[in-house]
Design a protein around this nucleic acid. Structure first.
Lengths: 282, 282
DNA sequence: AGGCAGCGATACCTGGCCGGTATCGATGCG
DNA sequence: CGCATCGATACCGGCCAGGTATCGCTGCCT
């Protein structure tokens, strides 16, 4: 199976429409029809059930959609990591580290300092990314290593080391009634009138339905809380750089958040090993 | 990057010789040279440092060798799992389960029975494989799920659930002096004259150097122990079907062995989910 | 009911690239 | 100093990817 065929099939499987898929791929529709037919013939498998009006995935087609995406990610990763390795030989960008924008900044700076002090350390590119985006970056090779936060992020398919576990606090407007309390429970927050949790974008950029304002990053979130339009439950390390107009109160029954460092399991990079070693020594 | 280019590059990187690599690929040498050169041009990266006499991998080339193998495995997996899914629609082979030959047989039979009793269960192909082979089968799609044994097998890159943890016992010839003891320590065994541990084949089929006879599977191992040529430390469940001419003694300081069920993290298969659910309920 | 629009399939052509053979240039070795 | 070996180059033929034109089918609208 060639990656070209996989790309073609995935386009059709996602669009369920040969014309649009061909347009997306920048080719004409007939070659696309032929390529899919040939892929089906070579696999000996019907991937799409097509009438002259409509397309639908077969069971096997759904499998190939999922597995094919994973395979294309792996091929992309090979491409990107090879390019990056070549740059590392002659120039500077050594490792790409993906982390959530606005999270764990002091852990991250401690990590970068500790690693930079090691002999043979290479430069580290920090990729700030949106909610849940790290997994994708790590999988398709745009990142070599990532900081993830359990239980929110999935660590499926990666090797990990735990770095830090912290309790969570509720972040509220500074003057809010609950800020006088020594601690809260989740029920106290869900019962709050007019202070819903914000909605975060899904990986595809759309927002789920529900109450609560939309927030794209922590800056927006803090702004919304300061305005009295939302509240949030965040790891307690956020207190270190909380705005003056916000207050934090421990939440006893919120799940603890564990920051882990994650990397693809087949990595054999010397630089990555050094970074992980530095991280576990923190 | 096309899979053809990846296959070509991996052949050359492994052989470090264009002629032999071309022979292995079943093509002539000049097209192979050209394909590699074109791959290098498209990546903008030198993969091989070649004089007119010799070839050596660059740093970037080593990265592409490792990442490319992973990518090709993912592509092969997509191919195999798609074919298997198509068969599952019309015919029988539903899930392929990889397990070590001769290990955990009663756990396995309990698992298969429990799953078969579930509504909507599909047939399960059991693939018996050699030491450490399960990882490869799972990665390239010949298996959908595997039983692995920590700490011997690497579970890197897979989702897992723990099924069973057991202590280990020393397996000795029935009449041996140590069989009278209630328990042993590893030091008792390594000190044994004339009863070394056997050597297991590496994934490439070769045996490591050292003392001890070569064993390919548990039947051979038991035969060697019965002959007084070796001893072994195995999970205690092996007692259930131990030959009459062998004896088992607990080893206090041997690491506990955990049997886990493992599957590729992106799997979305209904059948697989059912099997895992049955396994966790054992 | 009939015309029309939309969709996938088919037919046919062209150009590029893959793979083959022949050969060259370099280099280590006896 | 030849000779063997290895990778690169030159050149050619055939296949296949991709394009245009068109067909056949089907749902929908009037």
């Amino acid at each position: 199976m060639e990656t070209r065929e996989l790309r073609y099939f995935i386009a059709v499987a996602e669009e369920l429409h040969f014309g649009r898929a061909a347009q997306r791929l920048g080719i004409a529709q007939p070659p696309l029809s032929r390529a899919i037919r040939q892929l089906e013939r070579r696999l000996g498998v019907t991937l799409l059930e097509r009438t002259s009006r409509t397309c639908a995935l077969t069971e096997a087609g759904s499998v190939l959609l999922v597995e094919g995406r994973a395979a294309l990610d792996a091929v992309d990763a090979a491409d990107r990591r090879t390019r990056r390795a070549a740059l590392a030989e002659t120039g500077h960008p050594g490792l790409a580290l993906a982390t959530k924008a606005g999270a764990t900044s002091e852990l991250l700076s401690k990590l970068l300092d500790a690693y930079a002090a090691e002999p043979g350390a290479v430069t580290v590119d920090v990729l700030l990314c949106g909610i849940g985006e790290q997994e994708r970056l790590l999988r398709d090779g745009r990142a070599d290593v990532a900081l993830l936060h359990r239980p929110f992020d999935s660590t499926a398919g990666f090797d990990t080391e735990e770095l830090l576990t912290e309790e969570q606090v509720a972040v509220l407007p500074a003057g809010h009634a609950l800020t006088g309390r020594a601690h809260l429970r989740m029920a106290d927050l869900t019962a709050l009138p007019g202070l819903p949790m914000p909605r975060w974008p899904a990986p595809d950029g759309t927002y789920p339905d529900g109450p609560g304002p939309q927030a794209r990053d922590t800056a927006q979130l803090y702004q919304l809380i300061a305005l009295g339009r939302a509240c949030a439950v965040l790891p307690e390390s956020c207190r270190a750089h909380l705005r003056r107009d916000l207050a934090a109160v421990p939440v006893l029954d919120a799940p603890a958040v564990t920051t882990v460092i994650a990397w693809p399991p087949h990595s054999r990079s010397r630089a990555l090993a050094g970074l992980v070693r530095a991280a576990t020594r923190l």
